[in-house]
Design a protein around this nucleic acid. Structure first.
Lengths: 220, 220
DNA sequence: TGTACATCAGTGAACGCGCGTTCACTGATGTAC
DNA sequence: TGTACATCAGTGAACGCGCGTTCACTGATGTAC
């Protein structure tokens, strides 16, 4: 009767029985859906538990307060993101790939994630601004992903003609994430500029990155 | 006894007397400050009018509801932004400037604006997502600024070696605004990447833009 | 295998707080004659 | 120039709604003997 371990969820009172673990999961799932739809502030606890077919009491048995729920969602997200980065960014997986190949794929993948989780990530970003714990966890994730990508690109440093390759890699990554955030989370600067499909957007932003890195684009 | 005309403020009941115009101005100013500090949701009407040395009743004499206040702030901001763009982006003002010169200055200026008005713009961006009227007004501003910058750069098109110059100019502008938004409004991706001063940030993002445009940087 | 008891889990009505909005009232300004 | 009246402007206590949180209670599960 072992409970599936939920890592780094110390703001959730750990469930003692399978039953309550199941309830917790349902609440987290329902919350994630509702928050993605309406944002955190517009997701009343009452509505969350209704969707989770649970009750307010059950909610407060697990969470100190409503805020703790958002923390739990964020922790779950960060875990997944870092695990995904681990799987996707191994050296072996990209043996014969050029910088261009790597970035094309990475950016395309990020775009699909942001598309899928837009509402949730938006809630995190908004919360980020005021909540230090939040910011730190989110930062840990970005640092990790940045580092993995940077390692991968630094192995191809001879393709990169920017004066300070590592600095350019890092600043460029920041630019990529910024663009994803603005365009896909807040839907901004789109009619002002061109409206692009997700694929075209990924392609174009990759071009920006490659140009900045001083990589001459290869068509393979 | 003519009232200073406040353009495009149709969601504000027009004041009939100088006295009420003054009250309105005080409310708008106090609101702008408070919203910049705490965000719109965390700025109660009671607190706004307290700071404006006015009263709730006076507030609701001018505004249909609290939402209308944010609209008024946004309209005022957009007016200012477009007027500023008009002044700053005239052909004459940049007679002998290269693409690099223009962008350097424009980006530096934008950074200073975003620094100064961070809280306010953040409130707009957050609101943007859900409110269509808001989005449209904001879009009008971006379209306008984009167009003015694009005109200016297209006059220097021979410096630009990107395959489709106009498209590159526009997409690049979007990238610049995205970076400003993420970094300066939400303070994200900063410890993940390098932490830069405003000046260094402006310089670096200009480099990204120039590289993407295919402009060879000039040092003058 | 059965019974008693402790602990865990869940329920949902009730409470209370914050805040947007209303409204009855007072004061100020402008206008008609 | 003065008075009466209408309209504009402002005041702040009171109302009501939504929502986070509590709590007294019921039900389920696990354990001791």
């Amino acid at each position: 009767m072992v409970i599936k371990e939920e890592p780094d969820l110390h703001w959730v009172r750990p469930p003692q029985q399978l039953r309550s673990q199941a309830t917790l999961d349902r609440i987290l799932d329902a919350a994630e859906r509702l928050v993605a739809e309406k944002g955190f502030e517009d997701s009343p606890v009452s509505e969350i538990v209704r969707r989770a077919e649970s009750s307010v009491g059950a909610f407060y048995a697990r969470f100190e307060d409503k805020q703790a729920l958002l923390h739990a969602l964020s922790a779950r997200f960060v875990e997944q993101a870092m695990a995904t980065a681990d799987m996707a960014l191994t050296r072996e997986r990209w043996e014969d790939a050029s910088v261009s190949n790597v970035l094309q794929e990475v950016v395309r993948f990020l775009v699909s994630i942001y598309r899928e989780k837009a509402g949730l990530i938006r809630a995190f970003v908004i919360q980020n601004h005021s909540d230090l714990d939040f910011r730190e966890r989110q930062d840990r994730m970005y640092v990790y992903v940045h580092s993995r990508v940077t390692e991968l690109l630094l192995e191809r440093v001879d393709e990169i003609h920017a004066p300070d390759p590592e600095r350019a890699i890092r600043f460029g990554l920041m630019i990529v994430f910024s663009a994803l955030e603005s365009v896909m989370l807040f839907g901004e600067h789109q009619s002002g500029a061109l409206v692009l499909s997700d694929d075209d957007f990924a392609t174009e932003i990759t071009r920006v990155y490659l140009a900045y890195l001083g990589v001459t684009e290869t068509n393979d």
